[in-house]
Design a protein around this nucleic acid. Structure first.
Lengths: 104, 104
DNA sequence: ATAATATGCAACCTAATGGTTGCATTAAAT
DNA sequence: ATTTAATGCAACCATTAGGTTGCATATTAT
């Protein structure tokens, strides 16, 4: 079953920025990720939670800090689905082309 | 530059359903797409407009009907970006693995 | 023991979103 | 010439989302 929730999670500039940072950083805590986003720490935390709820990231506690990691499995599902859309579309175009050529 | 708008457009169950239908249908008019979505025609039209604004679909007029077509170029951009995130993440993990092994 | 750090949680506000109803318009059929 | 079909557009409404401030809590450093 396809989850619009994944795209919804990626569909916000701040959340997308967080995901981008995550993909490029060795280790990120909630605190790290929350800075330099142009919003408050608490605001950023809420956005991180949206990513958690959509399974785009996972949290793990370690002492007083919370680590955030990307869940690439979810990203993979999202990417595969888009691939499928593209493929279906292309097949359809191909079939149409064949039909037109055949009736020529 | 990366557009969160694309994901935002896909991040709604009704809009995603519209896109799915488009990928599987030979030709779709606004009217076709607006039926059996569980909302009014006008409501559906607004969602289609969101897809138009995000360049996920394009409209073309033909007499009294409006045809809707997928813009696979946009989908491709979205997919590529996710691929890139996955790749960066994998490279990072690989580098980390090398570091751990090297220091053993 | 105290102070500083890293966080979480709740209440609140405003703007955006998803949806509706109602009416206008234009092209195609009869 | 009328009617029917396929749309578009605007006003309105309820809910969700994105953000803030304020306060509580639990580790870590001094």
């Amino acid at each position: 079953m396809i989850e619009a929730a994944i795209y919804k999670a990626l569909g916000d500039p701040i959340r997308l920025e967080i995901v981008k940072r995550l993909s490029a950083t060795t280790s990120s805590t909630v605190g790290d990720l929350s800075s330099n986003l142009g919003i408050t720490r608490q605001g950023a935390r809420k956005q991180i939670q949206v990513l958690v709820n959509a399974n785009v990231v996972q949290l793990s506690q370690s002492g007083r800090q919370t680590h955030v990691t990307l869940d690439t499995k979810t990203l993979q599902v999202a990417r595969s689905f888009i691939s499928q859309l593209e493929r279906q579309w292309d097949d359809r175009l191909e079939a149409l082309k064949g039909f037109v050529e055949g009736s020529d």
